[in-house]
Amino acid sequence: MLKYFAKRILWMIPIVICVALLIFSLMRLIPGDPARMLVSRDATEEEYLNKRVELGLDEPFLTQLGKFLTDTFLHFDFGKSYMTKTSISRDIGPRMVRTMELGLLAAAFAMITGILLGITAATHVKKWQDSLCMIIALVGISMPAFWAALLLIMLFSVKLQLLPPSGIGGIQYYILPAISVGLYGTATFARQIRSSMLDVIGSDYVTTARSKGLTEREVIYKHALPNALIPTITIIGGFLGQMFGGSIVIETIFSIPGMGLYLITGINNRDYPVVQTCVILLSIIFCIAMLLVDLAYAMVDPRIKARYASSKVKRNK
């Protein structure tokens, strides 16, 4: 198991370097010039060229790339933002915390509501509760996050005045954004749990549990649900990616200064160091999330665990 973990960690290194190479090259291939954004619209050609020299953009592509890779991966120096001239390492810390908070809350919301809806639908299959839960899931999958966000703001901020419409502060500021981001996950989890539960409910061991005289609640939550959750673990990784993608729009709507907003501002301003840093960090987070998902899958699935155990036994022999 430890070898598997170490192997996966080592695999992350070439993946992150490839991401770094890609984002570095892509940023320089897309139209738009950071020096143009920094000088005024009425600046002379000389002022514009001076700005390019100041930013190091006049140097050959490979020189810039070498410097970027050395600074990032050997010195762990992400550089300074072109726009603000502040250290990206310093700026990105609190932003990453906010995005993670939003992401975790959204994930918690998505999983709790998704599991509840999925179980309700599976235990009331072909009844009105099933139809209602699946309609909610369908709406959750179909509704764009930004639209859901605006509807939630209208209801909870403008009409009911229960929650703040934008900004940051206590946890109350994260409730609407988390629901907006998590709604898609709710729907995905609900559909997956319903499907898995329906498979599991008809299994022999569930019938055995019932025949032992256990209550329906015990049968569902102690015997059926743990096994039905195993396939769901695989979709958590993909959900995390969607969550970070969705947070870019949601952070803009709710004016949350997180990674998403930092990234989108960086893209709009062609602030290369900011975009490169955000993408690299997001790729690391995503790799770690996928690793944890795989490990969790190996832990909960006895067949995978047994395979590692048997290979260990063979080696010992």
């Binding site: 005045q161 703040p164 419409p165 934008s166 900004g167 709507i253 709710f254």
Partner: peptide, 18 residues
């Protein structure tokens, strides 16, 4: 001073007293 980036959110922030 609060940064509000989305146009419709400005109106809402004013209406709700933010």
């Amino acid at each position: 001073f609060i940064s509000i980036l989305e146009a419709s959110q400005m109106k809402i922030a004013l209406e709700t007293g933010v």
